[in-house]
């Protein structure tokens, strides 16, 4: 029956020790000590940029109506060579080096002037010496000529095998031809073509087997 008193005694002793310790700490934190310090210089980290914009030259957006068989743009291989060529002037403006590519989208809202065959509208898209689209075909990664289908977007055709630097300009040219053999069913048809100019950092992203003028899907375009 004495055990509760004994526990009390032990608890009382522990409490006194705790009070003493706290007193020691309070007194210690308010004491001044001799010391010194030195801060390093600022280490700055800035990301490079990958940006694109319109080129310095004006683009020529085509709105060609009333096309008839045999009509073609000025620099098409055959045809009347009487209609305006279309151009799309762009510029790489980022600070990092970058790979450049273009997407090609052919579309229609009704009867299609572009048949994806030899009897429909032909597009000849290029960027300098790089051929992007030749009539109805583009080249895949392995160089296979493949048909551009209306309503689909052909992505990532590499413009150059060397990275672009700041202010690299790219001038896309679109020549076109409606062949003489275009059938009567194309009367009143319509087609549009849209180019999307892309840039992606080239750092830490080797180009691998990609070739200019061919689809390049082995790198990440963002």
């Amino acid at each position: 029956m004495k055990r509760p008193n004994a526990r009390f005694t032990m608890n009382l002793g522990g409490g006194l020790l705790a009070i003493a310790a706290m007193g020691t700490l309070v007194i210690g934190s308010t004491l001044a000590l001799f010391s010194a310090s030195e801060t390093s210089g600022s280490n700055d980290f800035a990301a490079g940029t990958v940006t694109v914009g319109l080129g310095d030259a004006s683009s020529i957006e085509c709105d060609i109506s009333g096309m008839a068989p045999g009509d073609s743009s000025k620099f098409a291989a055959t045809g009347s060579n009487s209609l305006d060529s279309c151009t799309y002037e762009v510029k790489y403006t980022g600070s990092s080096t970058a790979w450049l590519s273009v997407d090609v989208a052919v579309a229609t809202t009704g009867t299609n002037l572009y048949t994806a065959g030899q009897d429909g509208l032909q597009f000849y898209v290029g960027a300098g010496s790089t051929n992007i689209m030749n009539g109805t075909k583009y080249k895949t990664l392995d160089g296979t000529a493949t048909t551009v289908n209306s309503g689909e977007t052909v992505e990532h055709i590499l413009i150059a095998a060397t990275p672009a630097t700041t202010n690299t300009t790219v001038s896309f040219g679109i020549e076109y031809l409606l062949p003489l053999l275009a059938p009567n069913a194309l009367q009143g048809g319509n087609t549009s073509i849209t180019l999307t100019f892309r840039a992606v950092q080239s750092a830490n992203q080797p180009i691998g087997d990609c070739v200019a003028g061919q689809q390049c899907n082995t790198i990440i375009w963002g």
């Binding site: 009333g66 549009s192 180019l195 100019f197 990440i220 963002g222």
Partner: peptide, 21 residues
């Protein structure tokens, strides 16, 4: 899944329409 710094810009569509009678 990693992203790369990238950018893109699209041209306005160039339109072509066949003749009618």
């Amino acid at each position: 899944t990693s992203a790369r710094f990238s950018a893109a810009i699209s041209s306005p569509p160039s339109e072509f329409t066949g003749a009618t009678l």
